[in-house]
Design a protein around this nucleic acid. Structure first.
Lengths: 109, 109
DNA sequence: CCAGTATTTAACGCCTCGGTTAATTAACGG
DNA sequence: CCGTTAATTAACCGAGGCGTTAAATACTGG
């Protein structure tokens, strides 16, 4: 079985799943409600939801015959935490800090 | 052809590729150098690099018979920008802010 | 219990992914 | 030019992803 980050990133790699997450940012929703905007079959949506659940990106509850999905953003924190290590490579402010630190280091020598 | 975010996220979904990026955070490196820590074949590494390049996560330059890879973090900024929309769902401070705003809204009514 | 609605599971097809080995290309250096 | 080293491409394979339709399951309400 793959590591958590791989599971999270591959869950996010599908545009339908990202759209589902975006929809869930508004409110909880049932499978049928989530399926409505897409022209793919219900079973396909059902599996996307399983992938998202497996990645911890949604949780689900049952009420009568409806299964409601709810956004769980914690895995996104993990993913951003991983990317955070690279922020210095794209953040202008940190670039400047970096240059500053290099200058200081040169001064030391 | 898939959208940029999908390409980026699926590039990040492989642990070997994430390890390569981590290695490149230190310094540029040749294909052989990048392959060294892994016990998979050189062609496999070569394809991982192609995937990373395709996602814009590395750039490559040739010097003699060596092809050097260099980290390009800009796509990570795009990816975090996408996740940023969900920060309110996991950030404690923003949770509190959210609760605060809700209280204010209730007061208004 | 039965009919109806919501959702999942099963079984299938197609395509991509990640690995392999063998062959090819690119560039250097004697 | 030839041998060597670096890297990629070609051809193949097995596993898994994402879609389908058909069948099964879960639950409600009369």
């Amino acid at each position: 079985m793959p590591d958590r980050l791989s599971v999270i990133f591959s869950a996010l790699a599908d545009p339908t799943r990202r759209a589902i997450l975006a929809r869930l940012a508004d409110s909880e929703a049932t499978v049928n409600e989530l399926a409505e905007p897409f022209d793919i079959s219900l079973p396909a949506i059902s599996r996307h939801l399983k992938v998202l659940e497996n990645a911890g990106l949604i949780s689900r509850s049952r009420s009568a015959q409806w299964r409601s999905s709810r956004l769980e953003a914690a895995p996104l924190r993990e993913a951003t935490a991983w990317m955070e290590r690279y922020r210095r490579y794209w953040d202008d402010n940190l670039d400047r800090l970096d240059a500053h630190l290099k200058r200081i280091q040169e001064d030391d020598q």
